[in-house]
Nucleic acid binder design. Structure first.
Lengths: 250, 250
DNA sequence: TCGAATTTGTGCGTATGTATC
DNA sequence: GGATACATACGCACAAATTCG
């Protein structure tokens, strides 16, 4: 009998088990602090600590004056593979299509500007640090709620003076199609997926709870004949997405 | 001036900024509770709450009697793409190769048994629920520390009676090569990556701190001519891996 | 419309245990 | 041994939001 476990962890474990088993489904109300205190015979502090654990895991959210509730998470599916999806019915923007598939209304804001490549971006693009690039920041919303950030960089030498210099309608058609119109034929994509705590600006931009400020970051690079032509950092709130990759073997 | 932010969040934000900027590098000691209390003019509770936030994010860990320290995370790179890597020098097992690349000594435990397919696995394998399958559980260790769990399922109709019926040396060569020897030529792979709170058994098996019990789950399916021949759930502690995908376009 | 009760959020102080230095 | 430092746990106060009669 492992009574060596602290009380607040035991309570958090009990509640977590009820949540993952579905006994406490999405939207269900957790026992109040007072009830927890009585049933386990502990202090307010312990009850609060236990709840704080579950909040940190993103499983529950508290509402002042009301209670603590199991969070409802609708996962957005983000598909990554080589086939062209633009022939499917629905929105042509990759993001809007994913959002629509999850039953959301997708919108976005963007902002482009000329700048120079910092060292890490230069390395990813295979250009010299300080070389001119077009940087575009996007903020994607689903049903008005921020759900994805991304920043993309393109070497200006590629696009300058062409009709697609500014990628403002980039998400409307996707990078691959946009580059195609200027004779740059993207044939390979590399994505590096990692998990990390969110930065302060990301917490604000994505409207995250500071207690569960984790994000998935996708560092994506598009290549044409082995040469990088675009790279982007895509920042997603952890737990809200399912990333799907499909690729051929050998 | 947003003073509307609670003190403990402001302090957590300050410390987080110092960590992600590298000012407080891996292994660095954070200010003690007493110092935090004095510099911000708050109570112990606030200092503790701030630290608890960072712990929940997996950024720091406390050591009794000593202090709170920035965690050192060596990311393991897990590469997923179609090319055969077995010609490279080093270990031939996919896991041991990734571990070696990160400077770890890779080992694993495994356990295979005949069983029947539950509904979700049957759906992924395109077989009937209850059909016989070979299930293998792995637990991977890097330098003695558990770092990856995985459970794989294969339809028994494929492998029964063949030399590769038991995949016990599976991770030694990989599924693709193993299936190749019995004439099953895997030509496609699908991986679905998601983030979720860890289950109780995963917390134990991966030796996770209950405060940051998040995992990345990869649901991988190998296909041969469009037919699923193996599927696996790969469970990774969130934040310890970088997943690399490379795939062709169009 | 109002007010009282409930419930969480934030913050204070303190005590005890345990590990480190 | 003593000082330091975190972990756990107790208690309380007030604010802010909700709920409900």
């Amino acid at each position: 009998m492992p009574t060596d476990q602290p009380a607040y962890l035991r309570i958090a474990g009990d509640l977590r088990a009820q949540i993952v088993s579905g006994e406490l489904g999405p939207g269900a109300k957790l026992p109040t602090e007072a009830v927890i205190r009585r049933t386990y015979g502990t202090s307010v502090t312990v009850a609060k600590n236990a709840i704080a654990i579950l909040k940190g895991e993103g499983l529950v959210e508290g509402r002042r004056g009301s209670g603590v509730y199991v969070r409802t998470v609708r996962r957005i599916v983000r598909e990554s593979h080589g086939r062209d999806l633009r022939t499917r019915p629905g929105p042509t923007s990759p993001f809007a299509r994913d959002a629509a598939a999850a039953g959301h209304q997708g919108e976005w804001e963007d902002q482009s500007e000329h700048t120079t490549a910092p060292a890490d971006i230069a390395a990813r693009l295979g250009i010299d640090p300080g070389a001119p690039v077009m940087r575009t920041r996007y903020r994607f919303l689903a049903d008005g709620e921020p759900i994805q950030l991304s920043t993309s960089w393109e070497p200006l030498t590629l696009t300058i003076g062409t009709p697609v210099e500014r990628p403002e309608n980039g998400p409307q058609v996707g990078v691959v199609a946009r580059m195609d119109t200027i004779g740059v034929h993207i044939d390979e994509c590399e994505e590096k997926v990692a998990d990390r705590p969110a930065h302060a600006d990301e917490i604000e931009a994505l409207d995250l709870s500071p207690r569960r400020a984790h994000v998935q970051v996708i560092r994506r690079t598009y290549l044409a004949q082995g040469r990088p032509v675009e790279t982007a950092d895509i920042v997603l709130p952890a737990g809200r997405y399912e990333l799907v990759y499909r690729y051929p073997i050998e």
